[in-house]
Computed example of a mutant assay.
Amino acid sequence: MRLFTVGPVEMFDEIKKVRADENSVPYFRTQEFSDLMLDTDGLLKKFAKTSVSSQTIYLTASGTAAMEAAIQNCFTDSDKLLVINGGTFGQRFVDICEIHNIPHDVISVPYGETLSERHFVPFQNEKYTALLVNIDETSTGQLYDIGLISDFCKSRGMYLIVDAISSFLCDQFDMDKYGIDAMIASSQKGACISPGLSMVILSERLVQERVLTNHFASLYFNFKSYIENFKRGQTPFTPAVGICIELNAALHMIDRIGLDNHLKHIADVAADFRKKAEDLPVHIPDFPLSNAITPIIFDEPIAFKVFELLKNKYGIFVNPTGGALHEKALRIAHIGQTDVDDNTMLISYLKKAIEEIREV
């Protein structure tokens, strides 16, 4: 099996060894585990480029749970939010607002359009508490302009909540520079480890002004309890202990090679794939793309057939696409233990799959 998916990804051998060495998951209410979590937290904040006064919430849950928990802990029906919706995960923020009866407006970014200043014009005279954005809309691969979004929020005193689940540790990211008040990340994407752990880094401003003063009915997702418990390097409930150990190892691996070198490798692999894809009967959208993923649009409606053939016959996994692009688009990830030679292999199998489908 070979993964070119955006999560789970093809794990690094070093992390696979950590998994193999976990013959039994250790007991975690110990000083040793607390020290590991505090060490992890320092590296996570270093790579997010935020101050030590920020607070991290470690949830044994999916990225969607972290998105919902962040909204529940910070906003109520007395707020008004602005949501950028350019695909499946932008819509997920919209759905969360609707379920929790939080007033909101939506900046719609139809597929193929690049988010720009004109999308903000209809909302310039409205008052909003915060803006919610999936900085890399994973369903399309578009990487939004964080500078544009940040300037809009700063000029209006808005909180900025960023789902960076498929962008963090793949693209350049700077919480403090851009005034990001919450960054949501997940274990199985940029961290290149097992699914099951999500992290929400909260600015000191958001903690003091929102999290500590907001009251809502939840036991498991109440951030106040996580903040209090993490003073001693612990979570209030049982964490995904094995994945926490993987995360610590993965962050140390990135720190050892250097974050910039790590990001450059992903960018180089992405650029190499996009160049080699010119030999396929596909095109790549011209909106800005994350290093994490490349959407390829087929000239013929055969995308899902290609996905199934690669999976069932050759053991190669790429991301299919839902909705109107189901038969037209696949998404190729460049995260994890992947290099330009893997791109050459993948392109050859894509060519082979297309030829086989055309022969039927």
Rank of each mutant, 00 (worst) to 15 (best):
L169H: 13
D13C: 01
P103H: 02
G141C: 12
S348R: 01
D105I: 05
D299V: 02
I149T: 09
F173Q: 11
P26Q: 00
G157L: 06
G63F: 09
I254M: 09
H252N: 13
S194V: 04
S51P: 03
Y220G: 03
L43C: 10
E300G: 07
E137H: 11
G242A: 15
D151P: 00
Y128M: 11
G315K: 02
R2M: 02
S116C: 08
L148R: 00
Q72P: 05
F237G: 10
L44D: 12
L263D: 11
I357A: 07
A191C: 10
K328D: 13
T56D: 14
Q55R: 14
G258E: 01
A329K: 13
G63K: 05
I257R: 11
S34C: 12
I316V: 11
F273E: 09
G86H: 14
V6K: 00
L43I: 12
G112Q: 06
A20W: 04
S51R: 09
F307R: 10
F123G: 06
Y314V: 04
F287C: 11
T235P: 14
V211L: 00
D39P: 01
T88S: 14
H262T: 06
D79K: 07
P295D: 11
P236H: 11
V9A: 00
S139I: 02
H262Q: 01
T76Q: 03
L160G: 12
D342T: 00
R2L: 06
F317Q: 14
Y159S: 13
Y178F: 15
H262I: 00
I302T: 09
I302W: 09
